[in-house]
Design a protein around this nucleic acid. Sequence first.
DNA 1: CTGAAAGCGCTTACAG
DNA 2: CTGAAAGCGCTTACAG
Lengths: 330, 330
Amino acid sequence: MITIKDVAEKAKTSVSTVSRVLSGKIPVSEPVKNKVIQVVNELNYQPNIAAQSLKNGKSKILGLVIPNVRDLVFPAAIRGIEDSAQKHGYTVVLCNTDEDIAREKFYIEHLRRHLVDGFIFSTARKGHEHLLKLKEYGIPFVFLIRNMGNGVDSVVVDNFKGAYDAVSYMISRGLRNIALINGPIDISLYKQRLEGYKFALKGESMVFSEKMVVNGVYGWEDAYQAMVNLLKAGLKIDGVFATSDSKAMGAIKAIKDYGYNIPEDISVMGFDNSDLAALADPPLTTVSQPFYKMGVAACERLLKLIEDNSKIKTKIQVLPTELIIRKSIK
Amino acid sequence: MITIKDVAEKAKTSVSTVSRVLSGKIPVSEPVKNKVIQVVNELNYQPNIAAQSLKNGKSKILGLVIPNVRDLVFPAAIRGIEDSAQKHGYTVVLCNTDEDIAREKFYIEHLRRHLVDGFIFSTARKGHEHLLKLKEYGIPFVFLIRNMGNGVDSVVVDNFKGAYDAVSYMISRGLRNIALINGPIDISLYKQRLEGYKFALKGESMVFSEKMVVNGVYGWEDAYQAMVNLLKAGLKIDGVFATSDSKAMGAIKAIKDYGYNIPEDISVMGFDNSDLAALADPPLTTVSQPFYKMGVAACERLLKLIEDNSKIKTKIQVLPTELIIRKSIK
DNA sequence: CTGAAAGCGCTTACAG
DNA sequence: CTGAAAGCGCTTACAG
């Protein structure tokens, strides 16, 4: 392994000077600087990150904590984060928690001690208040997609409005009996989507019925079952708003299995505009979350928090959703 | 930040002894050991990974290099790797390269210098021979899903047999005109699947026709177009073997758009059994790759290479595929 | 502008 | 079994 000492010797100067040339912050005379740069290139020298990290307490590694990469919602966001991190010379450690608090804490403890300069969490939900305590430790972090309270920097979408727009659109298409297949409401974004759904109904003076909503649904198999139950209950349903594309796919499958046509008999609205939405049959009308952009924004915000040691004010970035009209709504 | 010195002071012993207790490899008297452990817990002390890394040249970080997390093939494998890494006290850095050699090299250079103890690559293909040179640097690495040559530890599937089984099954179901929608054959697994397809045809004395195969297809949009072209060419086709589930989904969409029924008019076979296969309409008959298990195997192999500094012999692990019969084949 | 030296937090021969 | 000391590869006051 080539060290700074090797470079110094070959360039006939001291390690201090080599370090200064590399950091670029401290003036070094032109000839010395050029010689050093030349040797660095010849030797293909790269500073040892562990040593740098030990010295200045920065590792240039970011921790990304999510429930599960297999959930279609995350890959695009991950790409946004990683592309942006890479551009700034940072690297990303990926941690899946399966919503398990113990595993989440394990990762935090493990990475906190100088392995990671900051965190991005997509695991905020009730019961995970321990995340808020990271503030006390002074380690920078931001919430992505999901968040909690207003005290933490976040990049999210306007979930209330996204849901409101979706349901309003369904109503404008003549749908009058719209069921809701929703996620666990201890994740605040599902709470907000529920509120958006209610508010849209109210705006058109349509009655809200508890029977038409199923909360706590996670993943497509679960949504399939929820839809089957709705259908079996003999309710009059002409539309379903599923608060994620996976749930919408499960609902679509159930509706077809029961012999109904989409959208003729029952219309389906998704949420997320994940990579498979266009591929669904029929192609899914849905509310897009700009995951890639959100990932970039979260990463940039985190880098700002890391690099500006000054106290900057907490910022909640709310990106707009967009209604993507395809073929699953009448 | 709490250091080993703090622990030593509070436990009224030396840092050497604390280090010994923590490593567990060197004998320490019971009372001292107990006192140290107690203080470690009280202070919630965690060793600084950068310092350990600098000292002993091990970071307990693994580099995972893949083309793109958004490709459905990778998330399950990533989970396998990460779960296994975590169990052994390792952490995973995720790197997406988009098949770009410059980006790949950047990551390797950046991480090689003591940031990472070893690599898992899923990016092997023609043009990426520089990966083979990592052997000279003495850094451990393994190939996953894709591989090159026989000189590198790998975890793959029997792609030839998987394809052979798939096509043989199609033939056994009475299909006689089977088109192939295949990936870029400079990725060896696609070459092997092509061979498996040919061999199955030959086994049943069916003629192989160049016109029935499209190579170089990547992703579902591309597969959609390939299928459209096949259909437009006026070929007699009663089955399609698409060498990934995404490609199969694209083909299915095209077939439907042209008014044919699946599987009555045209049967479709996928490959991978990725998370969306069961969700397709009709549910996709496909060849499973045990991605999660493969990820675990690759990680375990890499850890072995890292921890046994002795020269162990290169091992190519070939896991079996399995034909998953659903509804897309007549 | 430049070099010698201290020190970041560990681990591990070395001596006892 | 235990402690003092050296050293991993850097960066950065300190002195010149």
